[in-house]
Design a protein around this nucleic acid. Structure first.
Length: 246
DNA sequence: TTTTTATGGTCAC
DNA sequence: TGACCCTAAAAAT
């Protein structure tokens, strides 16, 4: 169930097994024909940015290919031990190393791109709170320049990368901000608080492998007991406490 | 056993 | 704004 924390967590858990390894690549499902181009190449980098993953593969002749993966709603990685017993009917991409295989199923995106496309995709993303050197200036500037509700802006990956529907609700609840508040009315202190909360909550998610929920899909506010409401923002329900979020 | 739902995103209207 | 894409788990029947 992927928001930014799951993506960074996937990169962290996969690097020890895949980096520097020559892999057997295939698409058991058959829907990723370019898997053949990755077969017998070496994984040299795994990069997580927002909800996107980029894998660099190098051929024996030193030619680099970039795999772009976005899990979307249903995408999932699973390690399997060899020898395999499953048919892999829904496995878009399988990467096999010595004793195990990494199966990717249900991704929104699984494609080979070149360096330019990778750079363009990265350029479209706002700062990612999970990247240590990321700076929030662009995020703050976007908020200051629009009347779009803050609850909608937090889901805009070009404003801030990696936040999904759960973190949006949790961050706004922790900041005590009404998700319907026009973004330009968010004060500088509140902007900073949102960035810091995004960073701490996402980091917690990476460490724990799950998101702790104080407001998302709760019936009542875990702070004041008021009935939780939802507001449709950016096309999706945003859970909030009408009593303590202003 | 079938239907619904989901922490995402794009595209057509 | 709604339809659709994909998959698997949860919920409904």
């Amino acid at each position: 169930m992927p928001e930014g924390h799951s993506i960074h967590r996937a990169a962290l858990s996969q690097r020890p097994h895949l980096l520097g390894q020559r892999v057997r690549a295939s698409s058991p499902q058959g829907r990723f024909e370019d898997a053949a181009l990755l077969d017998r190449t070496r994984v040299t980098a795994i990069e997580a940015r927002g909800k996107h993953l980029f894998y660099r593969f190098e051929t024996p002749r030193g030619r680099a290919r970039v795999l772009h993966v976005h899990l979307g709603l249903a995408g999932r990685f699973r390690w399997r031990k060899l020898p395999l017993v499953t048919t892999g009917q829904a496995v878009r991409l399988r990467l096999e190393i010595a004793d195990r295989a990494l199966d990717l199923s249900g991704p929104l995106i699984c494609e080979l791109v070149d360096e330019d496309v990778r750079a363009e995709l990265l350029a479209r993303l706002g700062p990612d709170p999970l990247v240590p050197q990321a700076r929030p200036a662009k995020f703050f500037a976007r908020l200051a320049a629009t009347r779009i509700p803050i609850g909608a802006m937090l889901l805009d990956q070009s404003a801030i990368a990696g936040i999904g529907n759960v973190y949006r609700a949790e961050i706004l609840w922790a900041a005590r901000l009404d998700p319907r508040r026009p973004s330009h009315e968010v004060t500088a202190a509140e902007q900073a608080a949102l960035w810091n909360l995004a960073r701490s909550q996402l980091r917690d998610g990476v460490a724990r492998g799950r998101i702790s929920k104080s407001v998302y899909k709760r019936r009542s506010c875990s702070r004041c007991g008021t009935a939780i409401e939802t507001a449709k923002l950016a096309g999706r329900p945003c859970y909030f406490c009408p009593s303590c979020q202003h």
